[in-house]
Design a protein around this nucleic acid. Sequence first.
DNA 1: CAGTGAGCGAGCTTCCGCTTGACTT
Length: 782
Amino acid sequence: MTDNLVIVESPAKAKTIEKFLGKDFTVKSSFGHIRDLSKKNFGIDIENGYQPQYIISEDKKKVVEELKKAAKKASLVWLASDEDREGEAIAWHLYDALELKPEKVRRIVFHEITREAILHAVANPRPINMELVNAQQARRVLDRLVGFELSPVLWKKVKPSLSAGRVQSVAVRLLVEREREILAFKTTSSFRVAALFGITGKGDEKNTFRAELSERFPERSKALNFLKKCSGAVYEVSDITTRPSKKSPSPPFTTSTLQQDAGRKLGFSVAQTMAIAQRLYESGKITYMRTDSLNLSASVLKSTAGVIKSEYGENYLNTRKYKTKSKGAQEAHEAIRPTDMESRTEGSSANEQRLYELIWKRTLASQMSDARLEKTTVTINISGASEKFIASGEVMMFDGFLRVYMESDDEEQEEQTGSLLPPLKTGDRPGAEKITATERFTQHPPRYTEASLVKKLEELGIGRPSTFAPTISTIQNRGYVEKEDRPGKPREYRVIGLDANGGITEETLTETAGSEKAKLFPNDIGIVVNDFLMDHFNDILDYNFTATVEKDFDNIASGKLSWPVMIDRFYNPFHKKVEETIETSERNKGERLLGADPESGRNVFVKIGRFGPMAQIGDSDTDEKPKFAALRKDQRLETITLEEALELFRLPRKLGEYEDKEVAAGIGRFGPYVRHDNKFVSLKKDDDSPYTIELDRAIELIEEKRRAEREKVIREFDSPEGLALLKGRWGPYISYGGKNYKIPKNVDPVELSAEQCLEIIRENKSRPAKRKTAPRKKQPKK
DNA sequence: CAGTGAGCGAGCTTCCGCTTGACTT
């Protein structure tokens, strides 16, 4: 009898595979990597050929112990981690850390979780590929060296606790450069002319259609001139062309395209998409969600074809194989697809169901026929003018995959394409019922969304499916960038109209322009860090840096290059540059002199202070103490004006006294407030402004808050002092000694005695705080 | 939790890529 232990990376995968392999096989999971570089001394012995110092990660000790035990009992251990660089390294780390005997080990790989694939893998074991493992070690060591040498430079030269790395720093660079492009963008306007034509058909019915002028007019006067020429003109159809066109479906989902489409169609953030996909994966509804592969297994191609044939008919079927084109793809899995195409809906929550449906449709559509269209273009001449009107129509001849799925665009399109045209022939003379020239504006390049940034990174070959979402979170958590909505501003535009009787009208209308939803904006600290890194480490921030080192990793993987040699070539000049920068470069606080304060004549400037971007009046080294004020969230060091900076110093404003204590109004981290007796009351957004609020109104708000505080109290105990039952946002809780404690669900808070409260507090405290990584504090402790 | 903006400088922060977990203040 043989006891076989199979080790895969994911527990959900383990469960599925166990079913295929039968009784002789136990399948366990390593939960990803089990070892990593120690954090002490870089975890790398730089003097000794960059020898890595691996340790078993704290949260993996239990896993490794269990695997060790299981391996001892087994006669054969099958290492079945993914067949890519990281997977090969996991296999080797397992081999090493579990102290397995070579004759007891088999390395197997499969690219899809199907019975055939797994049985085939078991029949074809191979040795661990040490060259591939070495490529991973080089990748790991390089990232550690870059991250752990660069970040401390930032601590010294910009601000403590900042971070830099091969991936995150490029992500920030993309955002900073795009923001500067947008700032530098000069909007211009031009007049777009559209006409509504009418023509009488055979049966005397009146048909109308729209056409657009082939050119735009940069100035109002030219547009007006044109309309005047049109007054009383005759229009004649001079040409009609019809040509066929087709649309093809998108390939099945990878991690990045799923994040993009779920963002556009369902409004999910990339983190949300991944969390929901994870649940679908764990319940066995979809295949693995961190993948860059477009491949679909033979069995799913067959079942998909079956669904298409029975639901839509044979002519909707077009079985296709897709090839990955993204740089650095490693194809360890399939594309993201339903495990069972026969199942139309799955998921235990509304969001899971919506995401599942999206995946199902995309998978199905990828195997369907092209949509066939017929595009008609009609050219209309104008008597007395050389410009031409163009009307275009689109007729769907065969809907094909569009029956189930259409990928959305990032840019919201302004004009609706292809409508239906009435029957027309050359020589027809339609009448113009109305012609309008509308002022339109050029648009700055779009800001990135989370998903479009992921798309860009993937195009550059930077980052992996497993890190896209975490990277997006990291750059936000570090304060480099922020996801925000911006309301947009009213903008006037002009419309000139010509009616059927030749009358010309002109009006000015208002639209909202520049509104943004869930876009990524770089913050000042992100901009300053980026500028600093670009100044001193532009080679690391180069968009091709990753692609270049990936070539080296490939050469290591194919045995043409030794990994310590590669690292050495990189590290020597890099480390020199780091030391040089520490020694010679100026501190970079993004300081900018705005001008002189008209009241005192002292310098007014902005810079990044200990608590973020701020404005300052007066230099620090003069006798008179400088004055400080924090920048508002929507202000940037780069763009703030002297006037705007001076405005900041009008707060906090003293309003007067109440109960012998001062009342003042200001704007803090959480918005506008009134302060009294060291207590803060938030101002209501639309009703009050800290710049204008009066004492009477402030007292009203203070009293209102006091009333609310009183109503919060369910019961106050006399002893011990400070023990109280309070009502909060999440229901009743116990407050004691400045801390809050949760009340167990099955307890009625009104009945609690002081004794019972203290008992609950003791229980709460005895529970260990299990959080592995403390949440980052925005403010340093006082 | 919001107001600050400095030090004789303790001790800390940080990377990317695999995985899932246990919290509801």
